[in-house]
Amino acid sequence: MTKPNPSSYFWAAALLFCLSSWGCTNPEETTVVVDPPTEQPKTFTNPVYNVGPDPWVIQHDSTYYVTYTTGRNITLIATKRMSELNTGNAQARVVWTPPATGFNSKEIWAPELHRINGVWYVYYAASDGENRNHRMWVLANDNLDPLTDNWEDLGELELPDDKWAIDGSPVEIGGQRYFAWSGWEGDVNVRQLIYLAEMETPTRVVGDRVKILEPTENWEKNNVSPEVTEGPQFLQRGDFVFLFYSAGGCWTDGYSIGALWMDKNADPMLAESWSRIDTNPLFVSNASAQAYGPGHNSFFTSRDGTEDWILYHANPRQGMGCGDDRSIRMQKITYAPNGFPLLGQPAALGQRIPVPAGE
């Protein structure tokens, strides 16, 4: 009987160790590559601000400034990211309080913040407490930061014919500045029309007013009295100028958004230059999304400049009308092959939505 060779036990044990623990392989050949954890996309949910009728947004440098109807003052909100409007990362401040009495002391509606020639302007509608006395008014601030205190009341923005006026919005088209608003044709509240006039300076409107739009479509009339077209907002893209508007009466759930379009080289002061988009209304109530009476919108561009977004108000339940239950919401918009905007339908409250690109 042959005795076992001790050295054979040693080599067998060594081979078993190498096979079981990879202890005999080259460390460089056994490096395990671990994939980094996948970064989850950033999202937000609507509403982005709990109370905010008639929201307006403007971007200056890297900051967005948002304002809305409080009825009693001008409040501005500054934020680096629109998805964080309702968080501690945004700064809200009352920058102007109206006088106790006078024709711009009450019913402070639909303010808009604009920066023109290095000066901040706020255009807003106000009255003395009597709705029939609503007119457009202007504030100015030459500070770089609009959240500072040095706002100056420049008085009424005198519009042609001196009629009831709200929802004023200046725009520059082809190197000329214009002012659009919703107003009465006469001195009685029969219907609200969209008017346009030329601006000589940021505080001076000149010439005649031109009626651009009156409610004639069924969705615009919406079986309400008075009939309403209001909240004019401009979006210029490619070869087109779009004028968005809200119609149907904010006190109804039929309040919706439509748009006119014009060739960018046409004369905006000619009513025949403007046409309704065939797919109007573009944005309507969505019961499953808890979005009733969506309207009075504005637009902004994502931080990286690749996306266009709509900012608008809507009620969470039926029959809530024109009050403070209207919250601020936002979502990305797209465009059809012909270059016309596609707003889709209001996104649901609580739905996770990717943040604007660049945030």
Rank of each mutant, 00 (worst) to 15 (best):
M1W: 07
P4Q: 13
A13L: 12
A13N: 11
A13T: 08
G23W: 06
T31I: 09
V34A: 04
D35P: 01
P41M: 03
K42Y: 13
K42A: 15
N46V: 03
N50R: 14
D54L: 02
V57P: 02
S62G: 08
T63K: 03
Y68Q: 00
N73P: 03
I74D: 00
I77V: 14
M82C: 10
E84Y: 05
A92C: 03
R93T: 10
T97M: 06
F103L: 15
K106N: 09
A110F: 00
R115Y: 08
G118E: 08
G118K: 06
Y121R: 06
Y121F: 11
D128Y: 07
E130L: 15
V138H: 07
N143D: 14
P146M: 01
L147W: 12
N150W: 01
W151L: 02
D162S: 13
D162C: 08
K163E: 07
E172A: 11
E172K: 09
G175I: 07
R177H: 08
A180M: 15
G183Q: 03
E185R: 14
G186C: 05
N189C: 15
N189Y: 12
N189W: 11
R191E: 13
T201M: 07
T203R: 10
L213I: 03
S225M: 10
V228C: 07
G231F: 02
L235T: 02
G238R: 13
C250Y: 10
W251E: 12
D253N: 15
A259S: 11
M262D: 04
N265R: 11
M269G: 14
L282E: 04
F283Y: 12
A291C: 13
G293K: 02
F299N: 05
W309A: 09
I310F: 08
L311A: 09
L311Y: 08
P316A: 05
G321W: 03
Q331Y: 12
K332R: 15
I333M: 14
T334M: 08
Y335S: 06
A336I: 04
F340D: 09
G344L: 06
I353C: 14
V355W: 10
V355P: 12
G358F: 06
